[in-house]
Amino acid sequence: MEYKGIWTIAEAYEGDLKAVSFELLSRGRKLADELSEELVSVLIGGKVARERLEELIKRGADRVIVIEDEKLDRFIVETYSNALIDLIKDRKPEIILSAATVNGRTLMPHVAMKIHAGLTADCTELGVEEDTRNLLQTRPAIGGNILATIKSPDSRPQMATVRPKSSRPLEIDESREGVIERIPFKAELYDQRVTHLETISGGDEDVNIQESEIVVSGGKGMKKIDHFKMLYDLAHKMGGVVGASRDAVDRGWAKYPHQVGLSGKTVTPSVYFAFGISGAIQHLAGMKTADTIISVNTDEEAAIFQVSDFGIVGDLFEVLPLLNEKLEKEVK
């Protein structure tokens, strides 16, 4: 096969690279070293400054390919898909990794369908099969009840989306060198059908719960919306954000973008706090891969304790204020 090289798809927002761009490079670096291939970070649009693009190299990329044009300022899947497919056909990468973000999970299936490539969604582990050099892609399925390992033996490129926060960016290595290649966008690849009318901000600053290292979540046990203030209090002390169970969102205590679980977002933070969350399987599916899980619940039998590294069986209305109070002193 003539397909060579590992690509990771960088993402930008408001002129800056998103953290997932660097996380993907640490995944990609391992594969590139194992397969002795070039690691390429591909950025479509984004208007990112050169110095930030250099950081992609310092954090693992051998090459950065930027496709630039004002027509790529906004993510429109049809145009992005055309641009990526054109590049794939020209360069023939062996593996393409994208973040399992809303845009990654839109672009990758669009591209995979058109080029008839295998795509595995929302992977938590990646490896290489000995002998065949096939990419082994491991992902949770059926509400996190199973881990399936998947490969695409015959189709190239092998494509996968990877959960945000499921790997850490590599440290900056100033000695790393690489190439930044800017490719003009071919006008015929522009799909004019869909129009971006407006961007509406999420209303609060920490709506992007998937990119946070610390998520402090509340469930039915929070009892009312006012009590969520205590969660915000705790989250802000640690630079974290607030999440919520489906029960809490359905009761209007938190907005849908904060919902963690099967019908909400999947998060993989360093630390996940669960207050008054019993741990229904649908909720566990959205947070079980967090590095550390800390939970407080009155019900000793609550399933959340099964997945917790630290649990307190007790009244969160006693524990949470005291924790906030003691942490306040610690910080001082």
């Binding site: 995979a112 008839h116 490539a117 295998g118 795509l119 595995t120 099969e129 082994l136 949770p140 996190g144 009840n145 199973i146 881990l147 399936a148 390992t149 998947i150 490969k151 695409s152 033996p153 015959d154 189709s155 899980i293 304790f305 099964q306 997945v307 917790s308 590294d309 630290f310 649990g311």
Partner: peptide, 17 residues
């Protein structure tokens, strides 16, 4: 294009304090 190679049942319990 994709093939399932292996299915595992992840360990649920973390056995925390």
């Amino acid at each position: 294009p994709t093939r399932v190679v292996k299915i595992e049942t992840p360990k649920v319990t973390r056995g925390g304090k």
